[in-house]
Structure formats: C-alpha cells, structure tokens
Write a protein that binds this DNA or RNA. Structure first.
Lengths: 249, 249
DNA sequence: CGTGATTTTGAAATAATTCAAGAAGCGTGG
DNA sequence: CCACGCTTCTTGAATTATTTCAAAATCACG
C-alpha cells in the first residue's frame, strides 16, 4: 500500500448516465418493476475511473454512492495497527457506498483495482429513494445478511479453505451473468489483496496457492485464474452446487 | 450439543402481548414515532420459554419472528461436519427470526440459553410491516451491516483478542440500557459456546481465559463475568471508548 | 451419592507467522 | 534495446499460535 494513490476528482469525467439500464443492478433486482422508473431519476452521472484510484476515504464525507458498471472496486478499512482489512469486492452490477448511517462520514474506503465505469447516486436523496421503493431497503438488508452469513464461519476455516471460498465466490460472481462455461477468468488481485481479505499473511497465501496448484485444484498467476477441479474447490469452500452463493447449512 | 433438547410448542404458553412496549425494541429504535403505532398491531403473542429450548430449526419453516423481552437466545448453524457455528446472541431488546428470504425456511437455528420471555411477530405479515414503516427495513439493514463490520476483522484476530471482543460486546450490551456501573454480569454461556462463536477449540478458550485471569483483565467462572481492567479489554478488543459498539476504523 | 456435562491440565502435532533474502515481472527513461 | 527501480512473487528456517488427543478434576442436579 505504498503506491502513489490517485484520488477521484468527482467532476472530472462525468457524462449523463444513460448507458446503464437500472435493471442490471444487483441492488434493484428485487425491486418491483413499477418502482424502477421512479428510481431511475435518482441516478446522476456516469464516471470513468482509472485503476488504483481512491473513490472515497473512511472518516470523510462523500456525496455519492455507486453501482459498478464495469471493473472491480475493493472496499476496505485501515486498522489502527496499519493493517488493511478488505471487506469485500464490488464487481459489475454490485453497489458500494451505502451504509447504515447514510448521511454520516464513510466507515470504510474504496479503491478501484482496474479501470472502472461507475454510476453515481447522490447520497442526500437516499432516504427519499427508500420511501419511493421500500423493497430497496429490504434488498440492502438482504445483501448485508448474505455477506454476514459467508463471513461468520470464516474464523474456523483453514487458509486453504478460505482461499477456496474466496476464489469460488469470485468465480461464481464473474461467471453467472453470461453463463460462461470457461474455466479461467481475470481477477485483478495481488496475493497481498487476498491476504488482506482473508486475514492471512502474503507469505502464507503464496504457499497455499502453490499447494492448490500442485494438487491440481486451481492456478492463479499473473492475475489469471484457471480452475482445474470445481468439485474439490466446492468441497474446500464448503458450498453446495445448488446454493453456490451461500455456504452449506 | 448432546443434551436432550426441548422443542418449542408454539401455542403452549401464549398470552396476549401487552407487557412489552414496542419502543424498547432495538429493531424499532430508528423508526419514526408516528409509525410505531401502526406496527404495534403486528405483534401477536408473548411467550414464556424455558432454557435450552429450540425455538426453530434451520431448513424448517417457522411462523414467527421474535423480539427478546428477557433472557438470552443463541442463533447458530450446524455445519456439514457436525460443528456448530454460533452467529450471534439475541439479548433483551434484540430481535431474531428475520432473514432475507422472510417467507422461506429458516437459514439458521435458535435456542434459548436461559429462561426467556419473547414477543412474537407473524412472519406472513412481515412485508406488510415493511410497507407500513419503510424505516424498519433500513433498521434491519443497519443491524446486518453493523454485525458484518465487527465480524470482518475476526479472521486476523488472535484467540485472546477474539475473546476480549466477545466479552466487551456482551458486557457493553448488557450494561448500556440501565447504565449500570458494576463490573460484573451474568452470562449464561459455556466455554464451548464461546468456542463455537469464535471458531476456537474449547480447550484453547479455557487456556486463554486462564491467561486473561492471570493477567488481571477479567474472570469468567460459573457463568459469572467479572471485569477487572476495562482499558486492557478495550485495547485487546480493538474498540475505542467513544464508539464502543463498532471496532475502531 | 452418582451420573453426565463442563472445566482444567499435559504433551505432542499441526498450522500459520515472522524474518530474511533472492528471483521474477513491469514500466520508465536513457 | 537495455538498465534501473519498484512491486510482486517465491523460498527457507526458526518461532509462535492453535489444535488434537487423552485424562483427571470439578460442578450441577436429580
């Protein structure tokens, strides 16, 4: 994390948001159709953002929340001891910048991992949005609950299981939209990112990846992920084929 | 978990719910006052439940959600390998039984740890409730987000830090309502419960508790918790005095 | 009292971290 | 095109944290 970070200049590359149909957003997937038209008007602008750009920073106020149209964004906290805890990755269709205290300062930071296209929502009209579409708040609760579920059992998992769970999740999320059948994908992550996500050391992530490679489960080199054995991956991750987005109960 | 479990017979000890004022509920704390009267009518009955009673079971449907009026309830999942992952504890004022798919089968189980008084909400009028009070869904999202935050950094914490975090959380939650200044509290937990919450082995929980006792931080014997050094506890837990309910950013 | 659950302790094995150093990849400027 | 600096990846050896297995001690309760 010693790289020269760019900062987002909010007004830099804005164009009117028209390219992104609201129905693509995960956030609005559960919202009844007749409410969607009401919501479209809360979108303001579309941004092009280059990689390694800090969208917003914890403790500071930020006027927008976003949905990701293309690219990857890492949401993270900087802990008092200087460590970085990556909370989650926002992928195309995902949202970021919503939090319980919507008007207050951000409780975490967000940085692009590669070139991103984002659609912005002004935060100050957020409460209004919720009243226009009550189902929206329920969607927010659902996402938080889903993330919580997968996180709860992390404490008892080994390094190999944690890495399997992360890659399974990312692979599943990048592949479900267009139902691709390829066994490879581009993940713009470093081994340090993975370590900061799973609470491991980069060294141990490296050794565990090597082990998974030698066991013929998966490969991850040069940000290219190749899946060799989905069954073993699922077994390690502790997820079932039927419910791929939540650990088996 | 080899004990003879009791099961809740829903209609057993029901009395009309009148003793519990809705404003005591954490769930409704952020709901505007004018919406509260609308919500009161969704409450159905009040139950007295003895300890070690299974309120509902994962994979099965259950007609009610609850708020806890007195007593402790543990929410947990049984994992495929037979392990038990305790997700959280519901204390007086907390709610349980709400989940993203409100109509579907339960995704976790709930068991009382001691004698409890519960207020029930029929699940089938839940959507209706959300429309009567949009702020309610936002409260649900807040709780999920808050829990997520505190959980995210669990993976990188040592056994001592995890135990400190758990006890700090429980102590803070049991003491903030009536602003008690005592340094002791009754926690109806076993060391195995703690282990199943934090992803540790019972043996290691025991050794770590012994260590914390010898270091003069806290004592936990016979379900009685005595806090000797709040500063050290906060430091280990990684929480600040100003924001005691969320880990420091 | 006696039985089963819970807590405590010891010794050995495993998992993960730490420290240190080298190798490989990547972009930039000469 | 190469050289340089920087980040990322890789590997080794020693240390620490946690688990596992086993057994004894204590506690709760009918």
């Amino acid at each position: 994390m010693n790289k020269p970070l760019k900062f987002l200049h909010v007004l830099e590359t804005a164009t009117q948001c028209q390219a992104c149909p609201i129905r693509e957003d995960a956030l609005f997937r559960g919202v009844p159709v007749q409410q969607l038209d009401l919501l479209q008007k809360y979108r303001s602008e579309q941004y092009e953002v280059s990689d390694k750009t800090l969208l917003y920073e914890q403790t500071q106020r930020h006027p927008y929340a976003y949905t990701v149209y293309s690219g990857w964004v890492a949401l993270f906290k900087l802990l008092p001891d200087g460590q970085r805890q990556i909370l989650r990755y926002a992928l195309p269709g995902d949202f970021l910048g919503f939090q319980s205290d919507i008007q207050g300062p951000m409780l975490h930071s967000a940085m692009t991992l590669n070139h991103c296209t984002l659609c912005a929502f002004p935060r100050d009209s957020f409460e209004e949005m919720l009243h226009a579409a009550p189902a929206l708040a329920m969607e927010l609760a659902k996402f938080a609950a889903r993330d919580y579920e997968s996180l709860a059992s992390m404490g008892r998992k080994s390094a190999k299981e944690r890495i399997a769970l992360l890659f399974h999740d990312l692979f599943h999320r990048t592949h479900k939209q267009n139902a691709q059948q390829q066994s490879f994908a581009h993940f713009p992550l470093t081994q340090e990112d993975i370590a900061d996500t799973l609470g491991l050391t980069p060294v141990h992530v490296n050794r565990t990846l090597k082990q998974l490679r030698e066991e013929g489960v998966l490969e991850f080199v040069h940000q290219k992920f190749v899946l060799h054995n989905m069954d073993t991956l699922r077994e390690l991750a502790g997820v079932s084929e039927e419910m791929p987005n939540s650990p088996v109960i």
